[in-house]
Nucleic acid binder design. Sequence first.
RNA 1: UCCGGAGUAGCUCAAUGGUAGAGCGGGUGGCUGUUAACCACUAGGCUGGGGGUUCGAGUCCCUCCUCCGGAGCCA
Length: 430
Amino acid sequence: MKQTAVSKIAEMNGKEATVNGWLYNKRSSGKLWFLIIRDGTGILQAVVSKNDVAAGVFLDCDRVTQESSVQVTGLVHEDRRSPGGYELQVRDMRLLQIAQEYPITPKEHGSAFLMDHRHLWLRSSKQTAILRIRHEIIRACRDFFDSNGFTLVDAPIFTPNACEGTSTLFETDYFGEKAYLTQSGQLYMEAAAMAVGKAYCFGPTFRAEKSKTRRHLTEFWMIEPEVAYLDLDGDMDLAEAFVAYIVRRVLKSREQELKVLERDTAPLEKISAPFPRLSYDEAAEMLKGQSTGFTYGSDFGAPDETLISGKFEKPVLVHRYPAAVKAFYMKKDPKDPSKALCVDMLAPEGVGEIIGGGQREDDYDTLVAAIQKHGLPMEPFEWYLDLRRYGSVPHSGFGLGIERTVGWICGIPHVRETIPFPRLMHRLTP
RNA sequence: UCCGGAGUAGCUCAAUGGUAGAGCGGGUGGCUGUUAACCACUAGGCUGGGGGUUCGAGUCCCUCCUCCGGAGCCA
């Protein structure tokens, strides 16, 4: 089927072109129809004059409804009055299917209604732009690791145990045994890093927590690098180079989509390494006298993160949290064993945490003690302990949440719009 | 799970305890340059469910359901 993408319509100026798409909107003026057609790459105004087309075609203009699939053929020409600067003077039109009354109108809708029609909502220009930026971010993630000596190692989705013992996991019946949907591929990436040196995984992760906020999904995508012979400082170097690369890539390749989203790119232009780094103690100092309800020794809450990240134009790396509030596999700071060698990256503009990671405990005895201290069963971790029995080395890694990153870069406050089909506490469909 | 908010036409929302309405969308008609076009006409309702107060309830009370925002937890 010979066709021209709307995004390439300028190249056909003065020539005849066929555009395959869907009717976005239409206006009439008696003997004249303006059909606004979208094809996923852009929006084109097609003009139908009664004198230029067969009678049936002109009648079809009256019958065609919003989101009907249409194929229009005609002469492309420049016209300042047309959105996009070009329009198609229609010679012929084929109606592939007349859409039933389309639920999503050009007027406003509530988020619940739009989410119920997510499969159709994806057709709107903003949602399409978000999909494309998400794609670009994922490509950038892969390119960054692929060109820096990393090997993609896929982690399993079914896991036999609640690996960190903290989060609520989704339980499934696995041939009569209990199995859980993964909350992180990290432990497996540690095994992979001991094999290939630098490994990463990218896949869905699941949390059964009954969270109802703009930052939470029950199913989300995470990219997790893990590197042998890397300490916390090196881990932070890696994280900031990685995030800076992603932002640069999107700014360079998805200018058009950012424009559709009306994203102010000025704050993104400022994102380059190095990022500010501060310790938990320094961050806690900033919260003194604030009314966020923060108490020293506990993890930061959402208002705390907003306050801390709000003081910087770049993402900020907060390191060395109290070991008591972090997972068992975090290595303790030799200079202060009450702290863990971990790091969170808080994105600016009130976005908050997009990365969590750190250096892992590599000493066998210390790790065994940590598992016991956290009240976790030893048996499921025997394979993990093997990594400390056979050639243990310092190693570090982190996990980046794709949806929060997409939300930050797109300027979309709620993560439910950053994934094609979000899974939330109250949403399993479509 | 806790705290707050909302359920009225297909959608977005109005309506002092006293006749349920508008805009958009749909339908019909009009217009040769429209820009979320415009103009005229028109159809469309178990006011989330159940119970109560009242002469009278969309409105007040109780209860349940659904959804939204936030907290905790996290990416």
